[in-house]
Design a protein around this nucleic acid. Structure first.
Lengths: 337, 337
DNA sequence: TTGTATGCGTTATCAA
DNA sequence: TTGATAACGCATACAA
């Protein structure tokens, strides 16, 4: 009990061969009953724990998965991580967090970690198509894409219908009677932002409402970009009476700026977010927003990844998770109708 | 280039022994110049990546550390994680996140992961003293405690002076002229909450102010407990004019409840939080709070852990990180003076 | 059902 | 400066 015990220590204690101990402990079911329990008891009393490095080397697996996001600092990913982690734990896997900060080199690095045995599979949420070179650092390791859509790739996808969700959000504002509705977008070359913008445009077009070019204000999902966008919007000759932002963080920025400008929310201007962060409900006034089932997305992505890793069937099409509109305190009918 | 190349493939390509290749690639500096570059070139052109399982097995290290928190879902830990991760990356380590959810079994599990080679060291932020049995799952693996204080343990600690920080926060309220100041505590058997409570009491006592028993309202750091505590406080015969909460989340709950009750912040009641979450500044009104240098705490803890792992010197006493008072929009002089 | 022998890919020891 | 060899701890093919 001095050093951490090895298989051969158990073998010696019980009086069998190391191979038998290994079989007994990995549960291959090929060990007779009397020996089986004796081995288990000995392992327990010695406090045996299999050495993961040795096992990984022998089995060529790490029992770990990599979850790669573009910014760990964004609390948005927390709930997703919890979903991923819960599903992983149940299957005996650990989860490694990767943070690219939108740096292609970092992304390549994580593919390399996949190739060198750090992890057996990856859940990718960066929204970038890895270059062929990057991809080849881990040619045949399973990858599942979540949240984002990587066009033209054969990876399984788990995400929401960003376009429809955005459309519904804007339709809610239209339903309240708003006609001058602006949108603060996410970073634009990217799919998620583009789809939300599409949804906004569709809703406006369906309602026969005009979208002046200046009503599509560019943001980057961050709080500050919401403030800036709001300042630009409210200085227009014909400022909007409602603002739909592509993230809750930007909605907070917008509301902060409106408050600075002395415009009441939702009295003067309605604001609608997207994400439903954990603080959105506690915000004053509570934020109306689009709720994504984040934990479920994480869990689903991990479940599919597990299937891929074990050679099971994986869905051929993208898995679409349902969103729900959370109507709270920042949206109201316009006052100047 | 079919399969991922191994050391012996490089050796064969260059015409040297595997041992030499290993030496060249690990940079032990014992390889002559002409061969050195030839090996490096060959490794690069073949796209060689060392197999981590084999290396870990041989070196008896995993080049990974475990960061264990009581609730990954709490965004508070994000900044700390970033600090830990940055320092770890620089030293070539990966970071595994562990989540105990206050379950002693889970905590024991992470100590076992430490013992079985999943990680070489651990940063513990759960505030619980591991039982001797738990601890023995990884007898001589380095552990650093952050945020919390585990009395009577010999682990290095990195944390803030909770007592002093709380005292300063309350002194700010006193300085504004408040006399009826209540405190919403964290979960109480725990050190961090107790120290903040002590700081509150000290400041009150130093100023000669009374602390009715009901002014110490019990919370659990969570948003909802802030709402509940606030409801109790404001229904007192002599309700407070200022409330100091032991976390920002609870401050948000308090403000929400005050808003429900029609009491303006800071017009009727001042509110002071503790943590400075990323949304606290964007909150309306912006939250006055105590700012902890979270990323620095993470970085410092990781730095000390690295020193312990490499056998370097570690600070004998707890490392105290500085806090700063963030006075923003939720604190003001009392109206009824 | 169990034991023997081998190899996973790397690094460390020893000799040359 | 380099090469041969062993060993890290485990799981498996094969033999008994």
């Amino acid at each position: 009990m001095e050093k951490t015990p090895r298989i051969k220590d158990i073998a010696a204690a019980v009086g069998v061969s190391p191979a038998t101990v290994s079989r007994a402990l990995t549960g291959t079911g090929l060990v007779a009953e009397p020996t089986l329990t004796r081995i288990r008891d000995a392992a327990a009393s010695l406090g045996y724990r299999p050495n993961v490095s040795a096992r990984n080397l022998r089995t060529q697996r790490s029992m770990a998965v990599l979850m790669v996001v573009r910014d760990v600092g964004n609390p948005f990913y927390l709930e997703i991580f919890k979903g991923v982690e819960a599903a992983a734990r149940e299957a005996g896997y650990s989860v490694l967090m990767g943070n690219t900060e939108d740096d292609p080199d970092r992304e390549a690095e994580y593919f390399e970690m996949l190739g060198d045995g750090h992890a057996d599979g990856m859940i990718l949420m960066t929204g970038k198509l890895p270059t062929r070179e990057t991809r080849e650092a881990a040619p045949d390791r399973p990858v599942v894409v979540a949240l984002e859509m990587i066009e033209g790739s054969s990876f399984p996808h788990v995400l929401i219908d960003n376009e429809a969700a955005a459309r519904e959000a804007v339709e809610h504002l239209i339903g309240l009677g708003h006609t001058r509705i602006a949108h603060v977008t996410g970073p634009i070359p990217e799919g998620m932002s583009k789809r939300r913008l599409q949804g906004y445009r569709q809703a406006m077009e369906n309602a026969g409402l005009a979208v002046p070019e200046e009503y599509e204000a560019r943001g980057d999902f961050g709080l500050k970009s919401g403030q800036d966008a709001c300042a630009r919007l409210m200085s227009l000759a014909s400022p909007p009476t409602a603002i739909f932002t592509a993230s809750d963080s930007m909605a907070f920025g917008v509301i902060g700026k409106l408050s600075d400008l002395g415009m009441a929310v939702p009295g003067k201007v309605s604001v609608m977010g997207f994400d439903d962060l954990f603080l959105s409900e506690a915000f004053q006034p509570p934020l109306s927003t689009v709720c994504q089932p984040r934990a479920d997305i994480g869990r689903e992505a991990m479940t599919i990844l597990l299937q891929k890793m074990t050679g099971g069937p994986v869905p051929a099409d993208a898995v679409i998770m349902p969103t729900t509109l959370q109507i709270r305190g920042t949206t109201a009918p316009p006052t100047t109708t």
